[in-house]
Amino acid sequence: MKRKLVKWAIIFSIVAFVFNLTALLMVFGYAPAESQMGEAQKIFYYHVPCAFSSYLMLFVSFVFSLIFLIKKTEKYDIWAWAGAEVGLVFVICVLVSGTVWGKSAWGKWWVWEPRLTTFLIIFLIYFSYLLIRIFGKIDSKTPTIAAVLSIIGFLDVPLVNRAISWWGSVVHPKKVSLEFEMKLTLAVSLISVIILSLSLLLWRVIADERVKEKNG
């Protein structure tokens, strides 16, 4: 099983490398600069895919947490933990790229914009998940607590988004019209970041299984 996972992780990593290289070349060499924001708009090609990948990874964590609670088998907990951790990395990427975008688009490092604020709260939920994992490393009940947090946290996300949208003003453009070159570049970066997130997920699972094996 582990050998198979390593094989897939290597394949995904190579494909992610090739796709990311292509995506970067397209972002800086093929996609046209946006008329108002100029080069800063190119953050968009990684900001949006990171947001998508973070949702995907948190969904992976949600599904495996649910399976873990039903079956009580450790291997599902490893996948749930890996999903949440990789998801959190991408949430941080969204927040960082969002603040850089905010500085160039609106002149401020932080704007209480609904979607960005939603990601800030997702960050808080999953950071608490991480803290619980760190605090309760040797406690047998920690996986159960973490699984519940992952399930409730994931179900909370749409409600957080709705609440924040109604609360604050909408600064994000509702509908973005993109040129063909921009759409193609976005599609390639989206695929590249998704593959990268999957390879990170696999490596994270392998690392955890190796630690467990070592500790017996």
């Binding site: 808080l124 947090l149 409730i152 909370d156 409600l159």
Partner: peptide, 15 residues
């Protein structure tokens, strides 16, 4: 643990 687990989940309800 308790506030750490609960408060982040209460955001939509609080708002």
């Amino acid at each position: 643990l308790y506030p750490l687990l609960l408060y982040p989940l209460l955001f939509p309800l609080f708002i």
